[in-house]
Amino acid sequence: MCTTCGCGDTELVPVELHEKILAGNDRAARHNREHFLEARVLALNLMGSPGAGKTAVLEATAKAAAAKGWRLGAVSADLATDNDARRLQKAGIPSKAITTGQACHLDAELVHRSLHDFPWRDTDMFFIENVGNLVCPAIYDLGQAANVVVLSVTEGEDKPLKYPVMFNAADLVLLTKCDLVPHLDVELAKIHDALARVMPRPRMIEVSARTGQGMDAWVAWLEELRDGIGLGGADAHAHGHEHSHAHSHEHAHGDERHSHAHSHDGHEHEHGSADHHGHARGGKHDHD
């Protein structure tokens, strides 16, 4: 066609893409995952209904983790308040709210932005408390090492069958409020059976934030996961890592205490406390 006035024939072309609609989120999640691995932080995405006991289980985890010497951190998605972050802070877990407004889930970019002004690098385990919702948080990868779905004994045994997308995404189900079991008609065997129909490798730990039941098994699971992906060793700070950024917002690296190979393209970049940053020890680092 003539580009001056638009006369002439146009052509209809079918463009085959076969591309995931969430490809953009998946890219941002990979970026987060690289950051977590490079900083040797075990990141966990905690999902479940509103009121399932996500915040309470983290509060209880603070006690159990103190014995291990783990440094915990958390960001909590909250529609309007920062109540959960304040509860966690009070329990001794440095925390921050991610105010989601109307959004019914967290996405990788929201999590990424929350990292900018939170000392997540100083943690061994970083919990992301997702929006209370059993539907869509499951489809957004955040860059976590594992998905933990919190299900309380009061929610009904058939929840896994009703929300297969969520339970299919779970690496672990924490069955919470087990102190209430004697007062309810709930049959735990039915929950196990339902899980086996939606999770190919069903894994469930029965806990109570109230009594501390099961917290040792949960901590052991975390430890096993951490060792499994090689984040457990003592020599936490000697490694090299290639990494490139393609996002277009301001980005600060806070206070990294290790040397890393890290190349950036296309975004503003500043380093926090420069003394801790170990590029001089051999990390490749380009800024353009």
């Binding site: 146009t10 052509e11 209809l12 072309v13 079918p14 463009v15 085959e16 893409l17 076969h18 591309e19 995931k20 609609i21 969430l22 489809i139």
Partner: peptide
Amino acid sequence: LTLDGIEME
């Protein structure tokens, strides 16, 4: 959830 194709002029 996949965008399979677009028909464009």
